[in-house]
Amino acid sequence: MNNQRRTVLKSGSGAALLGILASAGIITPGMALAEWNKAAFDAKSMADTLKALGAGTPTESKDVQVTGPDIAENGAVVPVGVTSTLPNVTMMAILIEKNPNALAASFTLPEGTEANVQTRVKMGQTSNVYALVKSGDKFFMATKEIKVTLGGCGG
């Protein structure tokens, strides 16, 4: 990073170079945040996201459910929920396979909080939506395809 800084200073066109660095993804606005799992949220593919979450290869489970519409007319607001009947659920996440970044949200559930969370997400296009649930030390997941008739990413 120091070397980069020197180059920037020397070149005398710091702003332009900073712009290039920013667009190359080297500097991002989220960098300063410590707790937020940047690697997981920046990961593009499902596999990378699961890796960043430390989930490895989750087992498909019918005790995990993705709730949501079969067809979403507006991709900008798709109600999605995750429920599970598994015991000791400590973490849940919503992943959307075909979004630019697969991970939409993750939740930490302390003891006493039910494995039942609903939110609303954006979907760029028709995609499989995955619910990832951590029960004990193991990860489980479930899938639901949600068809999107109007994308939620600017379009």
């Binding site: 979004n99 970044n101 609303r120 954006k122």
Partner: peptide, 18 residues
């Protein structure tokens, strides 16, 4: 009772129920 981390894919004016 709940911790959450959001990515950019959460809708504008986020809704959350638990």
């Amino acid at each position: 009772v709940l911790g959450a981390e959001f990515g950019t894919a959460v809708s504008k004016n986020p809704y959350l129920a638990f």
